[in-house]
Simulated scan of single mutants.
Amino acid sequence: MSSKSELGEFLRTRRAQLQPADVGLPVFDERRRVAGLRRDELALVAGVSESYYTRLEQGASVNASKEVLDAIARALRLDETERQHLSDLAAGVVRKGGDRVRKPAPERVSETTRQLIEAFGDTPVIVLGRRSDVLAWNRTGHALFAGHLDPHSPEHPAQRPNTARLVFRDAHTRDLYEDWRKKARDVVGRLRMAVGRHPDDPLLAALIGELVMHSPEFTALWSEHKVRAWDVANYRMRHPLVGVLDVTQQAMTVPSGRGQRMVAVTTAAAGSKAALALLARATAETTVPTAASPEQARPARARSAS
């Protein structure tokens, strides 16, 4: 992945979403050759020269100041998450032109984090790495999100489930979410954030390449260049063991986790609370079957539901 091309694509897609009237520019009766704002119009609103903005969009400028980035963010009407992504992408261009970036170290869950997972009791919890690999989960976290997979798989780096891969290539996971497209958009948006923060991660690039190759749906969403923050998300899930669950998935940054996030699942719906309690009891009393790959998900799901 090229930081320069990622920055240019992000700026172009955001520029294409705005019309002159959106930023207070006069609209003339003319045949416009581009969708959205032209470069000169965006530069005018941001208060920078057209040539400078063009160089930035083309990746030819590696020294954009915070003030300039803030001005462009305001002109593009970016929200806080998009502003952070813009900053990350610009920083990636600087790193490419300067110091060599070290290969990311293998991801591990600390003993402190494992103790925190246990402290959640029967509340479903998973810990995700920078690429959305599952680094750890508790019993109910495993049962809720991927009960058809080996519960010990996060302990082996080569076998770790990846939530993005599961959402786009795993039949069981697709069936879990009533509004699968909402979940898919959230997953893609978070991967976009990861690319901005880790532009030189070869495993992240390989994951994205795999999903582009195997999933037209991923490719279409990826081309939108939208970003999503790791915060709070609400979903309706249809679990094969306990039925419908209205859940809130809340992500928290793991201290000293180098990009790791802990996702805990709660619910305010009485029926969903009872279903989660049932899931906790079921996982304590049964042995969950395993599957070796995402392609084996549907047969495993059928066995778990029978």
Rank of each mutant, 00 (worst) to 15 (best):
S3H: 09
S3N: 11
G8N: 09
L11Y: 04
R12H: 13
Q17C: 13
Q17M: 04
D22Y: 01
R32N: 15
V34L: 03
L42D: 01
S49Y: 03
Y52H: 12
Y53W: 08
Y53A: 09
E67A: 14
E67H: 14
A75I: 00
L76N: 02
T81I: 08
H85E: 04
A90R: 02
G92Y: 10
R95Q: 11
K96E: 10
G98F: 09
R100N: 13
R108I: 11
E111W: 11
E111I: 09
T112N: 00
R131N: 00
R139A: 14
R139Q: 11
R139F: 06
P154H: 10
E155H: 10
P157D: 07
A158I: 11
N162I: 06
R165A: 11
Y177T: 12
W180Y: 13
R192T: 07
M193F: 01
M193K: 06
G196Y: 05
D201T: 05
P216H: 11
E217M: 01
T219S: 14
A220L: 02
L221I: 09
R228L: 00
N234Q: 08
R236E: 09
H239L: 12
L245H: 04
Q249K: 05
G257I: 04
M262R: 06
A264G: 09
A280V: 02
R281N: 12
V288R: 03
A292W: 10
A300M: 08
A305E: 07
S306M: 04
